[in-house]
Design a protein around this nucleic acid. Structure first.
Lengths: 216, 216, 216, 216
DNA sequence: TATGAATGAGTATTCATTCAT
DNA sequence: CATGAATGAATACTCATTCAT
């Protein structure tokens, strides 16, 4: 039940931009802990130290609020990765840096990651939003690989490239999930392991090796 | 209000076991479409063609019902995979068959898969349940790889093995997710692609190759 | 949720009278523990080792069942008291024996007492039933006192007599309540105490003493 | 569905304290009429002229609401009695005033009394609350009697005192119950009768008389 | 800008009661 | 005699959202 509060209001008038960030911080935190449905606007408002009507005034509906979280966190992550993997380096170095940035981000923003992937994946309203983001990632990775191939004068079908990239992204997400659950784990080490599994596999693929289903 | 008077009841009296399966079918369907929170017991009961109290009487709380779904689907999947990968075959064949069974299952039970992974992943109450299942899978995969290694007289650290297995399972889950979203995609083809990415990578790892982070 | 039961039914065909007593025993127990509303027909049936439809077939509605309990317990108690206080003894001896019987009954049938007084008092549907029983008691007590008075050649108004009797019954009920809550307490001792408080007061009243409100 | 569009709302915005009292009034009324279990939060909210969520927001769970009622009514009653029986008066005058205040309160707040005693008595969750209140009363009464005794230079065991006080309180509660059921009865007259039965008995006890069980 | 007051609509869960076997 | 299967109806509790101030 509501607690009776002191009669002298303790709020400070703050500029809109600041308040919005406070709210998004709170929202990301609560959404990631509780999940979209179980999160309550009450808790988010409380956590932001602000009243509910303000949340509605600034960031709209619960759904809109979630999308805003998605956007902010997604952008941050994409930028972190893109910034790390400069296009003029060799493919493996770029991939490595990308992975390192990715796991670093996840390690540092576990809440954000949880919002982005664990919560958003299931729920229809956000599938589109999320698909876009992932597509961007896949594209980046596929780009790296393709670049490397062409540098070696090789040619690989678009689809194949995409699937490899997809598996790579998928495996990373999965390890990231695991990382988000193990606060003591070291992001860089996790990145190294991922790189091992990924690069050695991808490397051979890129050099033309192919595995075929046995006739069994 | 009017009591139902007609002497021919609109329902059929069915034995408990049958009704329980009907309910689980409905529950899996509804949970996978709506997500755990958004799913309503009303809809599940309706979909099972039975009244809510029966659901509660037979399968308990919403949470317990979800766990029951998890159990049934998880067991089915595990059995499908275990049954496909007989222990006396070469490692790559076993892995291939396991993957084929896995993607085959996902392709055929997209609802079940969605329940198992997409919904359960985020929500705390089911994390344990899910972790157990995944652990079982990882163990199986690590077992396959280890078996193959020892057959070649090689030795690899437990942890390394587990990480490779983990990445493999993760990548598969991710592709499975993608498969669940693309009804037109072919499970077998997806399995082949996964095998390519996985085996060529795992294969080199198993033969002693290692990748090291560049000093950049 | 319902437990799955063995397929070979374990019930015994018993004559109606026996079953009815089993049910009443169970009902008294459950009603006294949970209260009328909170008691569930399920629990009563379970406790009686019988299925719900049998309860309905033999003893009717939940309300009817409760009334049946009331009846049985009330009759038992009334008989215990009436049997103890033979009409040809001196008034104080009769009162003493009545009280002893009353507290003895309560001590031995705490469940029954709880049903009779604690549960029935509040709920409208049973007020009548209960009032009748209490009236019978008050009448008995008033009769004892009146008999004693007339033996002494004194005369007291009906109403006064009734009020004294009412207070006496009330005090006894209250101590009985306390007794029902203290399993270790000794009924006989409680009866003695009640008799002290009651008789010394009643005694003086009977001898013509009267207290008047002070003019304050 | 249609949203309420009219610009003149049908409700009045009232400060929390006012609404809380309205709710408690309604709750006491409904609880006393229906009993705890049969009372519905819907009816209470309706009766208070407010929507259910407000009740939950301000006063919490149904159980918490009931306890709040218990508290308010219990405090009112205790204060009424304590305020009437000033400690520097003779014992009989104090007792008389206490009784008068008690029956006066019950007569004026029949609903409150019903909530306090009839409903709370049976149900476990409130037994403690109620026991505390009754203990306070018993203590006050025992205090009065003990004070009178010591003034007369007499000495009586603690337990005896408490039992007399307990019986007295019990008898009063019982008569109060009767009073609550007879709207036409006069509280003051009932108090006088109670005082008669109580004081003449207590008086003799206080003067050293004792009754012993006959050897029968 | 900021909030306390207010609610409509929805959801899980329970329970007395009945019928077909 | 005895029961498992079945349900209509009710109820506590929650939550996103809005409005008057």
């Amino acid at each position: 039940m509501l607690a009776r509060v002191s009669s002298t209001p303790a709020y400070k008038r703050l500029p809109r931009a600041v308040r919005e960030q406070q709210m998004l911080d709170a929202a990301v935190k609560v959404f990631s802990r509780r999940g979209f449905h179980a999160a309550s606007m009450d808790e988010i408002a409380d956590d932001a130290g602000i009243s509910k009507p303000m949340v509605y005034a600034y960031l709209g509906t619960k759904e809109e609020l979630f999308v805003a979280c998605l956007h902010r966190e997604g952008t941050r992550m994409t930028e972190a990765i893109a910034g790390a993997a400069a296009p003029d380096l060799p493919a493996d170095v770029r991939l490595w840096r990308g992975l390192r940035a990715f796991f670093g981000f996840v390690g540092a923003h576990r809440d954000g990651w949880a919002v982005l992937y664990r919560q958003a994946r299931g729920s229809q309203p956000f599938a589109g939003e999320l698909a876009t983001m992932r597509a961007r990632l896949v594209e980046v990775v596929a780009g790296m690989l393709g670049h490397a191939l062409r540098a070696e004068g090789r040619e690989v079908g678009e689809t194949e490239l995409e699937v490899v990239a997809y598996a790579l992204v998928g495996a990373s997400e999965s390890l990231a999930d695991w990382l988000a659950d193990h606060p003591e784990a070291d992001p860089e080490k996790t990145a190294t392991r991922m790189m091992n599994a990924a690069w050695l596999g991808a490397g051979r693929l890129l050099h033309g090796a192919t595995w075929h289903p046995p006739q069994v």
